[in-house]
Design a protein around this nucleic acid. Structure first.
Lengths: 325, 325
DNA sequence: ATTGGTTGCTTAATCGTTAAAGCAAGGGGG
DNA sequence: CCCCCTTGCTTTAACGATTAAGCAACCAAT
């Protein structure tokens, strides 16, 4: 490995000058800077991150803690975050907190031991990571007081509920996966805030919810709003088993616009996160916190977008009535 | 941050002794080691990875280059790799090569600049990463000469083909996504090696393949074997559009056992990779290469496992014949 | 009593970079 | 002509660990 020393003895100046020239910090003549740059290039010089980290105390590495990489949503966030981090010359060390709050703390500790400059945490549902010695940005949901930036889950819930309401549904089922999740509770709160008025709403949770939903549809509900595309897909399977057609007999919606939601049948109406924007804001926040220059605006919210596909339609009674006309 | 120096002055010995005691390398009395350990614990001492990296030239960080994190298969590999790496006290820097060979080279360069001790690369389809200055393990497929370890894609293809053949199908379609992919070609080679004998086989590729497949089914094919669950899901949608029932009129299989394959309808017969084993072998290989002690056995292959679900069944002609008996 | 080996510790150098402080040379203003 | 400021560079120390080499003390064996 070629170091700053070689360039120094090569050109005949001190190592400090090389460092100054390359980082643009001290006072070095234009002409010398050019010569040094050129020689560095020729020798294929790469600064030692270890040495720099030791001296400056900054590693240029961000820690990213994700609840569960096998849930298809998180990798896409991770990907965007890593792209944004690249732009700012930051590396990303990923840790998976594998479903438990304990593993989450462990993951954070490991990242700290590696000397990360900051942490971006998507918390385990229902948990708040304890404060640590480096800046931290939390990506969760508006109702979490620790939240730094998140998608507008509540607004997203409102979007899909309004869609369902507008096309004429008057009795709907809401189906959540886990009541502990702040994100899912916010989504549902957004839905009910819109539906509350003149629409009959039942909210069910968890595995038992699928059966409840089927029964409620059989007794007249015309739409099922879920808090995740994965739940919607499973619901779709249960409906098929009960011989209920989507969207002819019941409309179905998901959340997150996962890869498969556009290619399943019928293509799923869902609500998409603006993952790019989310990632870029998260990185903005954490880098601002690290540099400490500007005060950081936290608790930001990124709007969601309704994606209407074939799994939602006008309820069949209305269709029948129309045909009669 | 508390350093080795503080412990040293605290106890009244030299820093070298602290280092020796903590790493267990030099000669230090049992009793002193115990005292040092205790004091280190009390002070909450954490060794500086930067200093250690600078001195030893090893960062304890592995670079992981993935083709595309939004493809659901890779995160699950990434997750297992990161678990295995944790066990060996290694960190993992993830880089996404985002679909292009050029980005792949860039990603590798960035990781090298960060001083990773080794690289695990799942290459972009059809590419071989150029050799670099640190050990590298390549996770691809047997037919790639650079391959270090991979699932037995060809064997997996054979498994699913044998299943289809055994339950009585005699005219089948094989549907691949991208002919450039070594992995997909190997999967298909495995399928055809089993089917070749007395079974009529058509192989189609890419987007156009969906239409070809539908037409071939209409003219008598009773099974569609795809090289990915994603393709299978999309095929399922196309079949629905053409009013063809799965599995009643045509059997359908995927590959990789992605999250949704068990909850879609009908649940998908597929072939699962042993991702745990794959990850653990990959990390074994790369750590062996890094330590350089033992010669490394490369080109290893991990068996795949057939997962039979509801999307495959005896072809309908046979069923009819049976009923007649 | 001398030699030799072991044990338990210290000294000092080193990894590659940064940054504060210092210094010589030149220029401009009074 | 003297003083002060600026420019362009050097000197030196430091970041926190590791490690080769050294040395004193002790024990055992000749």
């Amino acid at each position: 490995m070629v170091s700053i020393k070689e360039i120094a003895s090569d050109i005949g100046v001190s190592t400090a000058t090389i460092s100054n020239a390359l980082t643009g910090k001290g006072r070095v003549s234009q002409e010398l800077v050019a010569r040094i740059r050129e020689r560095a290039e020729e020798l294929g010089y790469r600064p030692s991150v270890a040495a720099r980290a030791l001296k400056t105390g900054q590693t240029g590495i961000l820690g990213l803690v994700m609840p569960d990489l096998t849930n298809p949503l998180y990798p896409s966030i991770a990907q965007k975050l890593s792209i944004e981090a690249d732009k700012r010359k930051l590396g990303i060390l990923i840790a998976d907190s594998r479903g438990s709050a304990h593993e989450q703390s462990e993951a954070i500790r490991r990242l700290l031991d590696r000397g990360v400059d900051g942490l971006v945490v998507v918390p385990q549902k229902g948990t708040t990571p304890e404060p640590v010695s480096v800046p931290m940005a939390i990506v969760n949901t508006a109702s979490d007081p620790a939240n730094s930036v998140s998608a507008d889950h509540s607004g997203g819930g409102a979007l899909v509920a309004r869609h369902i309401s507008e096309i004429g549904h008057r009795k709907v089922v809401i189906l959540g996966g886990d009541e502990v999740s702040d994100v899912q509770r916010d989504r549902i709160a957004g839905m009910t805030s819109v539906l509350a008025e003149d629409i009959e709403v039942d909210v069910f949770w968890g595995e038992a919810g699928f059966g409840d939903a089927v029964r409620t549809v059989q007794s007249g509900a015309t739409a099922i709003l879920t808090t995740s595309d994965l739940i919607a897909l499973q619901m779709r399977t249960e409906l098929m088993r009960a011989q209920i057609q989507v969207p002819d007999q019941v409309s179905l919606t998901g959340f997150d616009n996962l890869t498969f939601s556009s290619i399943m049948h019928p293509a799923l109406t869902t609500v998409a996160q603006n993952v790019d924007e989310l990632a870029s804001r998260a990185i903005d926040i954490i880098s601002a916190k690290i540099s400490g220059e500007t005060p950081v605006q936290e608790g930001q919210t990124v709007p969601m977008r309704l994606v209407v596909r074939q799994s939602t339609s006008i309820p069949s009674q209305l269709l029948t009535r129309r045909r009669r006309q």
